[in-house]
Amino acid sequence: MLRSGHAACPGCVLALSLRHILNTLGPETMAVAAPSCAALICGAQPCSSMKIPVYQTTLESSAAAASGLRRALDTKGKQDTTVVVIAGDGGTYDIGFQALSSAVERNEDMIYFCFDNEGYMNTGGQKSSATPLYASTGSTPAGKLSKKKNLTEIMAAHEIPYAATASAAHLADLVRKVEKAKGIRGTRIITVLIPCLPGWGLPDDEAIATARLAVDTGVFPLYEVEEGQRYTLNQTTRTRPVKDYLMTQKRYRHLSAEDRDEIQLMVDRNWTRLAERSATS
């Protein structure tokens, strides 16, 4: 469902993730793309690299545009066409957040994919509200002084039918989540962590390993939330300390041992909270 010749950077796992997502969704799918790396990978009109119709909207409006497309298809009796959003973290956590919150509140029937590379990487690497604490970007050269917004928890607070995190290093888990989401009606959101090779300062062959480290260290835990209530943590343990994840990326090169310890504590707190919710729901 994703043709060769697309415009992803060599080694980018966004293309890999997109291919698995599209193959799982199948041809009776339409995508609304916000300007993003994903939109550029789709390429030019009218023939994009994706074998489904892609409507590119403006950066802040993907959830609203998907709502309009969904309702229009409904009036044509096309309820079986799956409407998906493909957006980046800037178009989701930041400028598109208002439209997303509104669409989730209305429980619009769509699957929203946020390809989270933790910054405005398509514009050369500036911070977004998905950029983690202390990460260096073009607009936070000394490191970001605030924490990453927790999108999945915010979505859970909307009591969204399905919210999940996923990783390009765990493709079977990603595919399972896409299949599960496809079987649910209402708004569903899957946030896929996409290590950005130039943005994070990684060698071209390190994207998968970095995505795996994010999961193994508990920096980006894989989990699902249904109806904002039922939490399922998809991994039982953390196998590595956070510093193993931080030390391989140039964006964290300036961190002191104390900075790394602070991030470890933050990750520990988040993990404990998730594990408790998962155990009690």
Partner: peptide
Amino acid sequence: LDTERGESVGNVV
């Protein structure tokens, strides 16, 4: 927009 044709709109030109 039609899944039968698969054509896209609004993208880069």
